[in-house]
Amino acid sequence: MAVLSKLVKWARIKSPWIIHYNSGGCNACDIEVVAALTPRFDVERFGILLKGSPRHADVLVVTGPVTRQTKNRLIRIYNQMADPKFVLAVGTCTITGGVFRGAYGVLGGVDEAIPVDVFVPGCPPKPEAIIQGVVKLLEKLQKT
């Protein structure tokens, strides 16, 4: 059994598929996330693929603060994902609400709605920083 669980852990670390959701940011973070997928950074090297359906993905990449309107949708997408699932929050907005903090429609960081595994600060963070965040997530997985 030990061998099997080791194999599964190896497979999980080697193939984290992501789904990308913007819960109300200014779009700059999204552009950086997309840039991480393009030839210059090419995260497919690590086996990362961008998937369209939450059922296929392992990592939910959230950008932007949680607004009152998107909160329920974010929770619903999170619930639709199959276990084991992880959340990577990209951008300062996802931590505190960033420049939108205190606005009438904004609740605050992503952890207001769903549990977060790794935060990537920056407004917007560079693709390198996002990849670093993914590596941190995988390290966390390695320890479990």
């Binding site: 497979a11 193939s15 393009t38 030839p39 497919e44």
Partner: peptide, 22 residues
């Protein structure tokens, strides 16, 4: 102009297998 799977096994050869097991 990308590199594609690289770090799973030699040259990423085991990538489809890793996806399958996961």
């Amino acid at each position: 102009n990308r590199i594609g799977p690289l770090l799973t096994g030699p040259k990423g050869l085991l990538q489809p297998f890793a996806d399958f097991v996961k």
